[in-house]
Design a protein around this nucleic acid. Structure first.
Length: 435
RNA sequence: GGGCUCGUGGUGUAGUGGCCUAACAUGCCUCCCUGUCACGGAGGAGAUCGCCGGUUCAAAUCCGGUCGGGCCCGCCA
């Protein structure tokens, strides 16, 4: 007999079917036993009246793998309006150990319980609410991929093992690489720029590694980045518009196609406008300083509280969960940035619900200027980490820009989770390397 | 790296000097229960209160150290 999935049983009323799945919940009412079986499509309720069949489940814990044949009966008292009667139960993989956490009830996401959440992640992810987070995540990245595909971006994969530090600043992980020391990539930036010289438009969704000793609710040591780079752009605005369009489309679609799941996860209402409002860093400093009497005008970047403040402002005054912070001061610029005539950097940060989810800069594409800016930054342009990178410029790169976009943070803020780790299957942070 | 904060059965909590021979909920085990869906009822097992040391007649509770979490700041391609 062919397997039927839980979501399809209502179309098999009166028929004998086979279901396969995990024991998710048992309720013994004397002569009646109800069990819920979980498969990839959800839950199905089975009514067991035969004592011999019930006895097969004695001692079997949640997670036991089952095959059940029985007849489908329309029953309005059953969830979904149908259930399986007169079943024959086969335990294919017995589980006799009690799970360390209860998975048939919502699992606490309070910050003080996150350690328990992740320690028991392997079984905890079987909880239906937890699964929703990662189905939403999978579809968000699928929508993004579809947008990029439609706009002729080519998906690429670039190395994560690199030959040595490429830039001062961020901490890197060193790994033993035979008789050399390699580092784990903090970003695919150099490679995606190189690939602009090949395909014009490229993107990668992959892991980046940062050895920052950051213990905050928004940092991971292994994060999933969407990196986009596009050539032949006319302006920084064009890049920012592309990233904004992609983000808005993915968000609108996920709110449309996952409405029920987002509601059950208590995600905030999505508030989007036709355009994404933009403020310069200087404007935000001034507005924030006036509003809070905390002077930030000398900061080179936004402080976390300013990110939250401007997001609140954009949501309430301008009807947008997304907002751009643009025109970073020169001191914040890096050697690969394009500097504008007024001295500011052609660089925007995309904030979503008060958290930076993407940096969207325009790159310097002129070879001589790159050498100049790198030398000024004290970098050794002959180092392997830069040598090949610079070849791309030497042999022709058009004006280009792109973004580094944090997928974990996007998922976190879409659902309204407090900590980025909750949006990550098996998070890696300063204290956690497992599971 | 700095500041603050928290560690009590598997899980979540209560208890903040003696009433603690550590309580409650849930999970687990046994029994009862024919429409449950956080099923219900009766009973049971399960923790030397993170660890080490100290103060005290007496420590889960106070002090010191240590280990492990969490939040914020800093840092952050």
């Amino acid at each position: 007999m062919e397997r039927t999935l839980s979501r399809d049983i209502a179309s098999h009323i009166g028929k004998e079917i086979l279901i396969k799945g995990w024991l998710h919940k048992k309720r013994l009412l004397g002569g009646l036993t109800f069990i819920n079986v979980r498969d990839r499509a959800g839950l199905v309720q089975v009514l067991i009246e035969n004592k011999d069949e019930t006895e097969k489940l004695r001692g079997m814990q949640i997670g036991t793998v089952l095959e059940i044949t029985g007849s489908v009966v329309a029953e309005e008292r059953a969830p979904g309006g149908a259930e399986i009667h007169d079943p024959t139960v086969t335990v294919t993989t017995p589980v006799t150990d009690e799970p360390p956490i209860e998975i048939d009830k919502p699992i606490s996401h309070k910050s003080e319980h996150l350690d328990t959440l992740f320690e028991h992640r392997v079984v905890g992810l079987r909880n239906l609410q937890e699964q929703k987070i990662f189905k939403i995540r999978a579809d968000l990245t699928r929508y993004i991929r579809e947008f990029l595909h439609e706009n002729e971006f080519v998906e690429i994969d670039t190395p994560k093992l690199l030959s040595g530090a490429t830039e001062g600043g961020a901490e890197v992980f060193e790994v033993k690489y035979f008789d050399q020391t390699a580092i784990l990539a903090q970003s695919p930036q150099f490679y995606k720029q190189i690939m602009v010289g090949v395909f014009e438009r490229v993107y990668e969704i992959g892991h980046s590694y940062r050895a920052e000793p950051s213990a905050t609710s928004r940092h991971l040591t292994e994060l999933t980045m969407l990196d986009i780079e596009m050539g032949f752009v006319e302006s920084h605005q064009e890049v920012m518009d592309t990233v904004a369009d992609m983000t808005k489309r993915a968000l609108r679609r996920v709110y449309d196609e996952h409405a029920a799941d987002l509601k059950s996860l208590q995600a905030p209402e999505l508030v989007l406008n036709d355009s994404v409002p933009a403020f310069t860093i200087a404007e935000i400093h001034e507005m924030y300083t006036n509003a809070t009497k905390t002077d930030t005008t000398d900061e080179k970047d936004l402080i976390p509280d300013e990110e939250r403040w401007i997001a609140e402002h954009a949501r309430k005054q301008l009807g947008s969960d997304l907002v751009y912070a643009v025109d970073f001061p020169k001191v914040a610029g890096k050697f690969y940035h394009k500097f504008k005539d007024d001295g500011t950097v052609a660089w925007g940060d995309l904030l979503f619900r008060g958290l930076e989810i993407a940096t969207v800069p325009l790159r310097e594409n002129n070879y001589e200027k790159m050498i100049e800016q790198m030398t000024a930054a004290g970098l050794d342009v002959t180092h392997d980490g830069f040598k090949y990178y610079l070849q791309a410029f030497k042999y022709g790169l058009p004006m280009h820009g792109g973004c580094g976009f944090g997928i974990d943070r996007l998922v976190q803020k879409t659902i309204g989770l407090n900590n980025v780790k909750e949006a990550t299957l098996f998070p890696r942070d300063i204290n956690r390397l497992g599971p």
